[in-house]
Design a protein around this nucleic acid. Structure first.
Lengths: 210, 210
DNA sequence: TAGATTGTTAATCGATTAACAATC
DNA sequence: TAGATTGTTAATCGATTAACAATC
């Protein structure tokens, strides 16, 4: 097999990997050392072949009749997701959701290292939240360039979201994790990942109605 | 066309509707009264036919050469998503994320009415957060039954998530919105919607790595 | 009218599932 | 060895896109 140059994987596959990872870590803590696709699949009501293909994507190879070595599989998934090393991130918008993210220390297990938080409100600038000194958004671009920050997190209200995204693009940020319920326009080459709670809620409330 | 008895719609379609809704509301506030699928599609880089099918799902019909009446379309989408009336919800787990949800007043635009919040920690029980009196989890089942609450929101740490879900099922809750990064087991018939931030983050960090 | 857009059917594409030989 | 499981190829399924007649 030749190595693909443009590795683009399906969202669906990518989103299953954290589930597997969680299970694998639980199994490890129980002393289990190997696992089969059949077992993983049963846990999440998936087809074993699907799990096998997801794992294949990470580069891990198994052993017939035995399955996969959990320790090795965990490390392959982490490295495939980029969770084996942390990327520096700046957060813009210290409202309730912004605060929640600042307070969630586990993100560093998921490749994310929030290093600074910004806001426009004079009430917030200068205060400290979960150890983060809140900075004025006007300092964003210079600081992000200087520190070569790669990820921007947007937790501002919808109307300010595009402005925040523009700042991030200007600052040379490579990926934006957007929590604002607004459609953002970013240039080609900038990775944009929307984490819109209302979309998830839409699925729930629609099903509830039926 | 006969009316389907078991209306189950694709997640992908359902998740696009809130995007359309947001745009339509913006257009309305600008005084625009009608819109075509082509316009909507362009806004989100989608195929116009896809948008047309999504809209068809809501039951709205358009006019050839003119498009759709925005006011009517908005109301059809809202009603299709169940956002034209609110469902009562109880939240369990008043950590950072739980607080953020309690503080986000806009959820009532999305069919969700958070009426009470619960926690296990004696430090939190009895305190007030964003106007919500924090109650002991031990009161959850009785209160939820009495008030006929339909939605449960789980914002506890992963290890307590299954316990919270079990409480909710016992209390006769119909749908669970789960923010804990743990796989939950619920009986058939209970709607489970996972809002897992780590899945979204996985897509972002993987792309960043390439 | 002319032509943009709807509504609808057919084609394509990609993800999931099934089948099966190889293997430990 | 026997048989469970991997790795891989083929079939299916569902979502997206293309094609096109009807219509305002």
């Amino acid at each position: 097999m030749t190595t693909k140059t443009s590795n683009t994987f399906s969202r669906s596959s990518l989103k299953r990997l954290p589930l597997y990872l969680h299970l694998l870590e639980n199994l490890t803590s129980q002393g289990v050392t190997s696992v089969s696709c059949t077992q993983i699949a049963k846990e999440f009501d998936l087809d074993p072949t699907l799990v096998r293909k997801d794992i294949e994507m990470t580069g891990e190879v198994g052993t017939a009749r035995v399955g996969f070595k959990i320790i090795s599989l965990i490390s392959k998934i982490k490295s495939f997701l980029g969770w084996d090393q942390q990327q520096d991130a700046f957060l813009v918008g210290v409202g309730n959701l912004g605060k929640a993210i600042l307070g969630y220390k586990d993100f560093n297990k998921y490749g994310l290292n929030v290093v600074a938080a910004f806001d426009n409100s004079p009430d917030k600038i200068g205060t400290k939240i979960f150890g983060y000194q809140i900075l004025s958004s006007s300092k964003f671009v210079n600081l992000a360039k200087r520190k070569k920050v790669t990820i921007g997190i947007i937790t501002v209200p919808a109307v300010f979201a595009q402005g925040a995204a523009d700042l991030m693009v200007e600052a040379g940020i490579k990926a934006i994790w957007n929590f604002a319920p607004a459609p953002l326009r970013v240039p080609d080459g900038i990775i944009l990942e929307n984490a819109r709670l209302t979309q998830s809620l839409a699925v729930l409330t629609n099903k509830l109605k039926s």
